[in-house]
């Protein structure tokens, strides 16, 4: 890749050759890349703490109503949860392979891996849809909407409050990830990313792995408490 090496230097205050992706307030690409990475990790930190509030709430409420939480979790199908876990783990793998493809300048593999990642993400959401609609029909809904008539314990609605808030917030993040990945795919088809500029792929990858990481905790906490 030498296209940026022959880019004319338009800027009056330039420092020799400019990569077209270099923003004016950075001295060189490495600085810009590392800066973006720090920014992304800080953003991930805020995401962890955002979810963290829900995890803490879940943990303390589980301590208040251990029996209700235990009995409520039987309404969740662990096979669906496990399937979604596997789907997300595979998507993390294809995502990191997308980053690798960009790093090694393999455009075809980049596009293929992005499509696979989007496919996995959509699969996840479809499975989630079936789970949600099942809960909806049974009346296993959060808070005041809880209308399940079968045998149940008093505080089971708290479990479903957290189930819907946490998986819902997670689902919003998956959906946002799909949108961003589609944009990356669109740009990748234009050849926007290569071994000297792949920051957006790398940062989206970090985000995507965090979404996976949160699911890694959601799965045992909701589906496997016994």
């Amino acid at each position: 890749m030498s296209s940026h090496a022959i880019t004319a230097d338009h800027e009056a205050h330039g420092h020799g050759h400019h990569d077209p992706n270099l923003q004016h307030h950075f001295a060189e690409m490495g600085q810009q890349f590392e800066c973006s990475k720090i920014g992304m990790w800080l953003f991930l930190a805020t995401e962890v703490l955002l979810f963290g509030g829900l995890f803490v709430g879940y943990g303390l409420m589980q301590g208040q109503h251990p029996e209700a939480f235990k009995s409520a979790h039987h309404h969740l199908d662990w096979r669906m949860g496990a399937l979604n876990t596997i789907v997300l783990l595979i998507s993390s793998f294809t995502m990191v392979m997308a980053v690798w493809s960009a790093q090694t300048n393999n455009q075809k593999a980049l596009i293929r891996n992005l499509i696979l990642t989007i496919g996995c993400a959509c699969t996840f959401m479809v499975v989630k849809y079936f789970e949600y609609s099942h809960k909806y029909h049974e009346g296993l809904l959060p808070g005041a909407f809880y209308s399940y008539t079968g045998p149940h314990q008093n505080a089971e609605f708290v479990f479903f409050s957290f189930y819907f808030m946490m998986t819902g917030l997670h689902g919003i993040h998956v959906t946002a990830g799909i949108v961003v990945l589609c944009y990356l795919l669109y740009r990748a088809k234009q050849g926007a990313y290569n071994s000297s500029y792949y920051t957006p792929i790398d940062l989206t990858g970090l985000y995507w792995h965090l979404v996976d990481l949160i699911w890694i905790y959601l799965f045992p906490l909701f589906y496997l408490i016994s």
Binding site: G52, G53, P142, G143, F145, F157, V158, S161, F162, M165
Partner: peptide, 24 residues
Amino acid sequence: VLATPVLGITAVLMVMERAFHIGI
């Protein structure tokens, strides 16, 4: 960076409690 997200989720939980009685 480290504290403000918790304010966000707290506000959300409070609104959820108000609107849906989630029980926290």
